[in-house]
Amino acid sequence: MLPTPSTSHVSFDRVYEPAEDSFLLLDTISSSTEVAFLKDRFSNATTHPPLVLEVGVGSGVVLAFVAGNADNIFGRHDVLTLGTDINRFACQAASQTVQTAIASSAQPSVFLDVVNGDLASSIRHQSVDVFIFNPPYVPAELPDFSRHDSYNALPAGKKATTFEQDSYLLELSYAGGEDGMVVTNRMLAQIPEILSPNGIAYVLLCAQNKPEDVKKNIRSWGPGWLAETVGSSGKKAGWEKLQIVRIWRQTSG
């Protein structure tokens, strides 16, 4: 088993705490089938270093896991990691999580930054080789974004966040609107734009997201697009509570 990054410095009052969904991502990405798949695509040491982008990094545990174990997962340690989060406090926390994981790695990879943004809206097209997304997937009303600016920083002249502010920031990490799919659908629409021709995406879904419909929809993006469940947890009466869908394009020839 590969080591799980430390997140002991993160304040879980306002940044999503690693939970079953985060750990399912770690287990799936480091599973023997996914490691074989990733090595097959990216291990050739003379090709360009793969760029791993995680949107909504939260504590940074998933991105740090990839950065700290790049050699085991990709068969190379010149892997680049980049993150985004809508919550500025998460950006700072995750940055530290990734740096700590790299510092304790025998084969350090290369961390870029965590930028504060909406999904992947600031990412250059066709630049991402491996995309990871643990969305706000719970069917619950979306938070009121009109307060985002004021809640995304410490209140003026204060050294601590308020309770309302913390509640808002945590809501961002889980509330997904109708079917829990409002944010995920916006993200899925960006995936064909940001992925490199060889790029792949891992997206976590819960049962209420209607994962079979989601996969069917992805396969209709155009010729060559594939979507398969490659990891799952919390089986209950034949239903997977959580699953990881891998999205990729069949490479021609």
Partner: peptide, 9 residues
């Protein structure tokens, strides 16, 4: 050190 790409509504 953190770039902010959030856009006004």
């Amino acid at each position: 050190g953190v770039a902010n790409f959030l856009l006004p509504g």
